[in-house]
Structures are given as structure tokens and as C-alpha cells.
Design a protein around this nucleic acid. Sequence first.
DNA 1: TAGGCCATCTGGTCCT
DNA 2: AGGACCAGATGGCCTA
Length: 130
Amino acid sequence: PAEILFIVSAKMLAEWDWKKEESAFGDQQDSLESNSLGSSFDSICSSPEVRSKDPCATQRQTKHKMSTKRRMKASEREKMRMRSLAEALHELRDYLPPDYSKSGQPLTKIQTLKYTIEYINQLEDLLNHA
DNA sequence: TAGGCCATCTGGTCCT
DNA sequence: AGGACCAGATGGCCTA
């Protein structure tokens, strides 16, 4: 189980880090402005300029509302899913040497993933040079 | 008080 | 059709 946890977290972080690198610091301003496409969708679509041509109208029409019951069920599942993810991260923390949390405070999720990568690399080096 | 972290809700998309 | 996954939004809590 520990190995699986390590591999999964390593993959998660690898992907996360890679995405970060891609959109790095240079264009932070841009990304801030172009960010939240989803939430800005409504406001964009409601602007008079855009409404005339109307790329959004069809999308709006295809927006189907979930029934309240189904939405509640989905929320509940999502809650459980996120909890199990958090639980796995807590568990993962226990496999890291105590050195990583010198501050005395528990590692954050991101820290846990980053340090796990670091730790795996260290172990890998150790094995390679044994 | 601002900023970081987290849990939760929600709508969209993909898959079975 | 319904479940799983994802990303954005939001609000609460905590700390520097």
C-alpha cells in the first residue's frame, strides 16, 4: 500500500508541477485576467456585443439543470471522494521522515506531495548507488 | 487584516 | 441516465 501511495502521489505532483511550470510566473498577470473562464462565461455571454453573434446561446440552451435530488446525491459523493483523498494524503504524511515537518506544524497537502517526490528521489538515488 | 489552507458546493465533461 | 472526475467559487479558520 505504501508503494502505491507513493506512486500515485508522485504522479499527481508530477502533473501538478508540470502544469505550474507551463503557466509559470511570467504570465501571471495574464493568467489572472484570463482565469476563471467558467465563471466569467455568464458575464461574457450576457454582454451585448457577444450576444448578437451568440456563440453562447446554444451552449446556454444545452445547459441542463440536474434535479435537486440528483445534485444532492452528487454533492454527497463528491464530499466522500474528497474526504478519501484527504485521508490518503494524511496517511501518506506518516510515511515521510519527521525531518520534513520540522516546523512542528503538519504538512499541507501540497507540501506532502512535494516532499514525497523528494523522498522517493532520495530513496531511488540510494538504491542506485548501493 | 491579508493571505494560505481547507472543505464543500456546483456545473461541466467523460465514461460505462 | 448516472457515476466519476475535475476545476472554479465561496466561506470559514488560522497564523504572521
